[in-house]
Design a protein around this nucleic acid. Structure first.
Lengths: 146, 146
DNA sequence: CTACCAATGAGACTGAGTATCGTCAACCGG
DNA sequence: CCGGTTGACGATACTCAGTCTCATTGGTAG
């Protein structure tokens, strides 16, 4: 549970209107620990009786992505999910058990892309790296349960 | 343009029936240089008057993925695409101009995942790395056209 | 306070992918 | 070579994510 104010602040800074639905979506995102889908947010909103249209959730997500406050990730299942994150280049480590997500800068990557560029002749423009595993919390929970 | 026989052979080896539609889908895939979507294959089939049902294309793709003859990749646009590939762990370098795809082993990765594991405490199980750039062919084509 | 216009919500629409089911043809045994 | 078994097929209906349209609303500047 982070603070939705970071997203709201980013909106304000970029000159977008601070509307009620956008605040609501930012809150819902802040209240989620790990990754989530657009459908998750729609359900959350309905459960809390905060009426936000489906289209609005998609529009808000799109906007937040543009502001780099949220990023899209692709789960191994092929599903599209989103994660709240910092606006700098980084990658995500995703717990396949509890969905919790951590950001890493993965400084080793430049060496890898340079190597690939040299071997293939491609001019590398961007890359996407997603790591899946078990987070420390789930690891200890698992071992306790024997 | 590779040879569809690799896929067909894999089917046979795994004990699946070698049906006409599966051969057709394997051919269509072999005739594509880079990545493709399920819809691409359906269109290709229709154009060539090779009647293969939509459902069958999806089933064939699913099967080929299980046999590791084809792999799913996620384009930066969020689209799901597929690429033909070898059945060993590797990554794809995708040309954002012509969709041509190359496989690399990206040997630098183990160091990166080890580093990430150490810093985050996660037990890394798998990772997904996709590189996007301009392939040598497109690079020279671009510079010639000045 | 008011007016303007960006943003909203309802709902129609599209397109990917899945499920169902009656029919068909690939493979096996004889 | 032939017939039976059954896995695969195609048609079609369906679901679900995401997009688009358009009339209405509410944030903000002045």
């Amino acid at each position: 549970m982070t603070d939705s104010s970071a997203i709201v602040a980013a909106l304000d800074r970029a000159g977008y209107r601070l509307t009620e639905p956008r605040r609501v979506v930012a809150d819902l995102i802040a209240d989620r620990a790990g990754h989530f889908t657009a459908a998750n947010l729609v359900d959350d909103a309905r459960e809390r009786r905060l009426d936000v249209g489906r289209a609005t959730v998609f529009r808000a997500l799109e906007l937040f992505i543009e502001l780099h406050a949220v990023e899209r990730v692709d789960l191994p299942s092929g599903e599209h999910a989103y994660v709240e994150c910092e606006p700098v280049h980084h990658h995500h480590v995703i717990c396949s058990q509890c969905a919790r997500t951590t950001e890493v800068e993965a400084c080793g990557m430049p060496a890898v892309t340079r190597d690939v560029a040299r071997r293939t002749g491609f001019k590398i423009q961007s890359h996407r790296l997603e790591l899946f595993g078990i987070c420390p919390t789930c690891q200890s929970a698992n071992s306790r349960r024997t």
